[in-house]
Simulated assay, not measured.
Amino acid sequence: MKLKSPIFEQGELLPAANPQHGGESPPLAWEDVPEGTASFVLLCDDPDADGGTATLWMLYNLPADLRSLEAGIADDFAPLKGAAHGINTRGNCRYDAPQPSCHPRRVYYRLYALDSRLSLKAGIARGQLVRAMEGHIISEASLTTVVGSAHTA
């Protein structure tokens, strides 16, 4: 499985005009999905956050036929057919962009193909999601970008 974005390549700095700098999620797309995929989970982490790795975004139960997400996925994303947000490190059920800092930040997007849908309500914590995924991951893909520092944005 391969995860990509139309606005940045693996390891590249996001463009200054990218919506992520305003707090919106970037557009993402994936391909080469394995047979037997019943749903997807998307996790987004900032390992360079002050105080340790921050989870910026969790989406789960994304439909198996979905192959992309537009920029700026909002709290109300009914077209995603039952998908749900989990609670990120800041306590929000949405995408939260990395906070500006004195140094560039790496941001990891990880997509997991699961062999089932998860029986979880919306707004769960990361630990609950990770435990529920155990034994159901059939493929995963990742994409890394760098968000400019407060001095380069």
Rank of each mutant, 00 (worst) to 15 (best):
K121N: 02
A17N: 13
I137W: 05
H21F: 09
N92S: 13
S116L: 05
I7M: 05
V33R: 10
P47N: 15
A38R: 14
A84T: 05
E31P: 00
D115V: 00
P100L: 06
C102E: 13
A78Q: 14
E12F: 10
K81I: 04
A122W: 03
L66I: 03
H21P: 01
H136C: 04
L62S: 06
C44H: 01
A64C: 02
S39K: 12
D32Y: 13
A38Y: 06
V147P: 01
N18S: 15
F40I: 07
Q99N: 06
S39N: 14
A125E: 15
G86E: 09
K121P: 07
I73K: 10
I7E: 08
G127C: 00
R94E: 13
D75W: 09
T145Y: 03
R110L: 09
G51E: 14
T145H: 08
I87Q: 14
A141H: 06
Y109W: 04
L129E: 03
S149T: 11
P6E: 04
P34W: 03
P63H: 09
S68D: 13
G72C: 10
L3Y: 01
G36I: 00
P27K: 03
I137F: 00
D48K: 08
L111F: 03
S149I: 04
G52V: 08
P100F: 01
N88S: 11
E70M: 08
H21A: 01
H151D: 10
L80I: 04
L3T: 08
L56Q: 14
K4A: 15
L120N: 11
N61C: 10
A71D: 11
S116A: 15
S139R: 11
V147T: 13
T37A: 02
Y112T: 07
T55D: 07
E70W: 01
A29R: 15
I137C: 05
G22V: 00
A54M: 14
M58G: 03
S149C: 12
Q128I: 07
T152C: 03
